[in-house]
Structure formats: C-alpha cells, structure tokens
Design a protein around this nucleic acid. Sequence first.
DNA 1: ATTTGTTCCGAAACCGGTTTCGGCAACGGC
DNA 2: GCCGTTGCCGAAACCGGTTTCGGAACAAAT
Lengths: 379, 379
Amino acid sequence: MNTNRITLVKGQTSSSPKIGGRVTINDLARHLCMSKSTVSRALNGYSDISESTCRRVERTAQKLGYRPLSHAQAIRTGRVRAIALVLQNDEPDKHNPFLQEFLAGACEAASDFGWTVTISTAKSDQDMDAVLNRLIEERKADGFILPRTKVTDPRVKLLRRLGVPYTMFGRTGHGQKQIEPDVSWFDISGETAMHDAVLRLVDLGHHRIGYVGSDPEFNYSQLRREGFTQGLHTTKLQADPDLLRKGARTRDEGTAETRALLQLDQPPTAIVYATDMAALGAYKAITELGLTVGKDVSVIGYDGVPESQYVRPALTTYDVDTRMAGERLASLLVRQIRGEPADQLRELQEAQLIERDSDGPPALSSTELAEKIQNSDLF
Amino acid sequence: MNTNRITLVKGQTSSSPKIGGRVTINDLARHLCMSKSTVSRALNGYSDISESTCRRVERTAQKLGYRPLSHAQAIRTGRVRAIALVLQNDEPDKHNPFLQEFLAGACEAASDFGWTVTISTAKSDQDMDAVLNRLIEERKADGFILPRTKVTDPRVKLLRRLGVPYTMFGRTGHGQKQIEPDVSWFDISGETAMHDAVLRLVDLGHHRIGYVGSDPEFNYSQLRREGFTQGLHTTKLQADPDLLRKGARTRDEGTAETRALLQLDQPPTAIVYATDMAALGAYKAITELGLTVGKDVSVIGYDGVPESQYVRPALTTYDVDTRMAGERLASLLVRQIRGEPADQLRELQEAQLIERDSDGPPALSSTELAEKIQNSDLF
DNA sequence: ATTTGTTCCGAAACCGGTTTCGGCAACGGC
DNA sequence: GCCGTTGCCGAAACCGGTTTCGGAACAAAT
C-alpha cells in the first residue's frame, strides 16, 4: 500500500505546515483577551456565557473571518457536519438526467446549514453495504440520504442496526401504513398522479386503459400501481387484469410491454406508464403497428425527463421537481441529525401534470383499434 | 442562527458520546504493548520503525479492524483525504446524462486510494468562487476536479493563487501550447474525432461539409473546431467560412444553426457537430425541410449521449467514456496531492466512433440539394 | 454578618491522531 | 576498553477545537 517510506533527516526542522492564514480559535481568543473555552462556548450558544460576551465574540469572529474547522470539531463532537449520498450504479439505465438537479438541491440545502455533501457510488447491493460501512467507520458523514427506496431495503436494515440517521427518498411498507416508526422521508405522490391520469383519460372518452408499471423491487412501483387501480375504481371502470402490466425497467421493455398490450383482443386505447422511459419506448411499438401516438393510442408518462418534450408527439407527463426533492431531503436529514424527532420530518409533494400531445380523445374504439392492428400485423 | 441555546445542568454527567465500538490508535497501542507514537509511525511507513514491528502493527491493525479517522489525522496533517467536485448549475442544459457515470468513476478511483469525494454546486461564476472558497477555508477537500474548463477559467486563477491542487477535465490555452506549466489534466481529444469525422465523410463522397460548434467559452469548442478545419486541410477541401457555424449550446440552437446552413445557396451535404445535443437538434431542421437524415444530409455528432441510439435514424457519433474520465481525473488529482509532479500527470485519450445510420454517401449534390430545399421551402 | 445562590468565566483535560526530540542498547572502529 | 554511530522506540508536545470542573464576584436570603 504505502511503498515509499518516509525517511527522517534529523535536525532539519521542517517548516511547520502553517495552513494558509487561517484564523483559529486561539487567535480569536487572544484577540478578545479571553480564554478559548469561553470563545467556544459563546459561539455554541451555551447559557453559560453572558449575552453581551456572546455578541462580542460573534462580532469579532465575523470580523476576523473565523470559521471553525469541522473536522477539528468532529474529533471531539463526533459530528463532521456532512451528509452522504450513495448512488447505486448497477441499474439498467445508468444515465440519470436528474442527478445534477438533485445534487444541486441537496448541496444548496446542506450549504444553508453550513454542512457539506459527500458522495459515493456502489456497484451492487453487497458493495452498497461495504461503501456505507466504510463511510460510517471513517465517519465521513453524520447521516445518509437514501434514494430509490426498495420495498425491503437492505440499506435501511444496516443503518438502523448501526443507529445512523438517514432520510429516505420514498416511503417504505408500500403505503401509509408505517412499518418503520421513527423514520423521516420525502416523497412525491406518484399514486396521486397515476390516479389523476386515469381520470384525465376517462374524461377524454377512454374506456379501456392499460398500465405499464416499473421495477416492482422499488417501492414507488407499488404505490403508482395502486394509484392507477384506485383511479379505475374511482371512475367505476372495471379492472381488467390483462391491461395491467408491470416491470418495464428500460425503454426497450416499455416497447415490449406496449406491444403485448396492443396485441390483446381488446387492446387499450390509452396507456398510462409508471415512468417516462417506458412511455418513450411505447412510441416505437405504436408507430411500428402503423398507429399514431395521441390519436389511435394515448400515452401518459411520469417523471418529466427532458427528452419527453422533444419526442414527436411531445409526451404528456407528470413532472417531478427533482431539485426540490434533493433540497427537502437534505434539509430533513440535517434537522433530524440535529435532534428533531423523525416522525415529524416527513413530506409528501405532488407531481405536476404537463399537458402535451401524446394523449387525446380516442380516434377509434377498442374493437376498431384491434381490427386496425390486425391488418397492419398481417402486412 | 443558533436559537436554542445549550442549557447546562450541573452534576449531571452526560454519558460520554462513546462513538460506536470504534477501535482507536490507543486501543491498538495498548493491545500491542507499545506507544501510540510507534504505532502511528509504523502505519505511516516511517524509516524509524523496524520492518518487523511495522508488519506486526499492520497485521494487528488489520485484525482489530483499525481505521484511522481522516478528520483526526487532518487536524495535524492538514489533509482530509478527500477531493472535491464543484458542479456548475447554470448551464443551458442542466440535464447531464453522464454525471452518474462520471461520479462513479471518480468515487471508485478515490476509494481505491482510501479517499472520498465531496460534492457541491454553484449557480454562477461568482457563486463558484464563493463555493470554492468555503470548501477551501473549511478544508473540506485537499484538491479539486475542475470539469468543463473554459478558455480563461476563473476557477484556475483562484486555486492557483491559493496554492490549492487541482486537476482539469480539459486543457487550457487552446492547444498543446501550455500556458500553465505545472498543471495536471485529463482530456479526450475532441479535435482528433472532428478531424476523423471529416475524413470519414470525404471517404463517403461528400465535398461540402458543414460544421456546428459549441459554446466558444469552453476550451474544447476551440479544439474541436481546429480539428475540423485541420480535417478539411488534410483532405485538401477548401474551407468555406459560410460552412463554419459556432455556438450551438442547446438542441434548439442546433436546429437553428442547421437551418441556416441548409438555406445557403450551396448547402452542405454533410454536417459535423461538436456535440450530440446540437446534432439531435439538426434532425428537426432537416426533416422540417422534407429531407432525410443520413441520405440527403449526413450528420455526425460527438459525445455519445444515450438518446443518440434511440433517435431515428440512429446518430453516428464519437462516444466519450465518461466513467473513465472521472476515474482518471480522480486518480491524477490524488497522485498530485501526494506529491507527484503535475507535469507528469497528464493524459489524453480518444473518443470512439460509433457508426450508425445518420451518415452515408450523399444522395444529391449540393446544387441538387439546394434545389430540393428551395422547393420545400415554398411549400 | 454570615450563608446561600447565581452568574460568568478561566484552567485544564480531552478527542484521536501526528511529529519532535531524546535516550537506550547494540554495533563497529580504533 | 572507549567512543561515535546507528537502529529503534517512548514520552511528550501539538493540531484546533469542545467540555468539565471549580472558583471568583456579586446579589439575595437568613
């Protein structure tokens, strides 16, 4: 590991590192003519110190530009004033267009508290455990943001066992029924969007509506699916199990699932997708059969990926404010670490519908559609 | 800021934090029956310590699972064993599909050295300065990775002045002529790709080849443009200034620039784009005029964005291995911080051509193409 | 006038490491 | 046999903070 050994040259006083003109708490204390313990307690708001000294210290600290080193504090307090985010990098689609926005939100929120964000990636579930353990052992962060929560999430198990704070992007125990009691989370209500999508399509005149879900491993998949079926229930549409497909993790799988739906005897005239990726895959399946997206088959997506506005016809979708998600998550996590009770650190927001051109009134009935597909199929 | 003051309750000995069963250097020293200074020096490879003790210490450290706290070390050494990456978030397109890959590479390389990555974002150039300053003042990182280097880069100026190590993704001083002497960088030779693209198109039979550049503020734009003109020179094609457009920062600007090129009296039968985003924008301009991408007008992009393989016809492009870039950059930076001379820490790699369907032999001559465009224009 | 509390602050220990300095033993040279 | 090296290690200082503990000064109560 460490090949080049350090050779000592005695008598040669190596000039002390002298970290760039930093002003330390000692400098500050000397400047104020008081002990550094007083300075420290003043800055940390101990009731011990009179209001006036407190203010005086704060003013001088400001003036001298004193900023405590978080790692110097950490050695005593055990807190490094940093939160960590571990990305899992083995998903089918490694290209997450939202990551930058998400990070921007998280960094800004952390920064507002005077905290920082450290990041790491894991190649697999096992690797994830190793990475988390390392960050915890080396105390590189005081808590974790857990994106993409799974229905049963190994990360949660580990962090709970170790008593390390964390905030989830997504809920567990697929629903409102909380399995974990003292856990904080932020989530976008995908189920509300899916529910809403059904109502929208029914309003447009559709009677047979298909659904293509997402990776069932993730908790949001369950929720969105429930939202969809709830939507059918609300509109008194009967739920045909043939119209419920799940598990399109990629664009290509979206194509395949759509193909399967359209080849039914009674194909849907509209399809709701749990993710934009799957919805974009649908375009290929639909045009392949000589059909037109938005006329013959209506398509609604979810996520608001940038590509959705460039595809023709532009995709109607529910846009998720990823930046805000990052911001809220970081904020909730820091507050939890600071001691606020986790059960009060939960937020649920809604995705925002972006009406575009991929959905509309059905041009044909399901039966007519089936006939048209039959013909094109022969061709 | 700190509203809830800490109230002291005397006599109540707050149970010491007792950071989870961590084994410290003291535990290790006790276990080995030697002083902690010996242990420390043994682990850091001082010539001071006998080989045998060294090995014994290392073995025991391994067995007991001892891992020094980097922030405890940092307080003395000034090194936190972390590198930082600051993302600028004000670009026209905030959706960077490569970010995750890039981070994965950087994190893995850092991790191999036992380092970590802290991340932050800046909203503007001024904000960038503030963010960098904060990270440096609080000593959150020992060095920086600078993505997207500009022709004259304010970050470089700041970091040089402060003597903070950094490694650039990209070169400065647009060319091999190094303005900055002791600087390390990693880059992909975009100019080679552009040069190669011209040769490829000439081989296919094109004589008039257009070029749409990228934001001239970034250094790579200059280089790619030079590569393109060099390509013309190599193939003895005459460089028509009308065919050289620069500054397509977004997909829409790519559309606009392409439109301008096609409305020339002698339009190009092939166009090379400095970025895939611009190339994707071209599809709209080309089809709008009733032309076919890959037949009437050949298109070659650069970057290898995921969308390039889904668009029809699939885009021929030069793929950049972003993961490797992250990995190399992190590695170079850590090595520089560890003391290797910066001038030896430079790497230049090549993008890889992905042949797809957006380019081919010209279906029409430039004159014929102009005529066809004229007609469709009237329509 | 003494006792009892409060208020506010300083001295010193402490956190987990690194680095300096000095000293002991063994060794080689004369 | 004495002396100067050399190899190897321990004691203690140090890094920049936080926290404990005790005590001075002053006010209030007895």
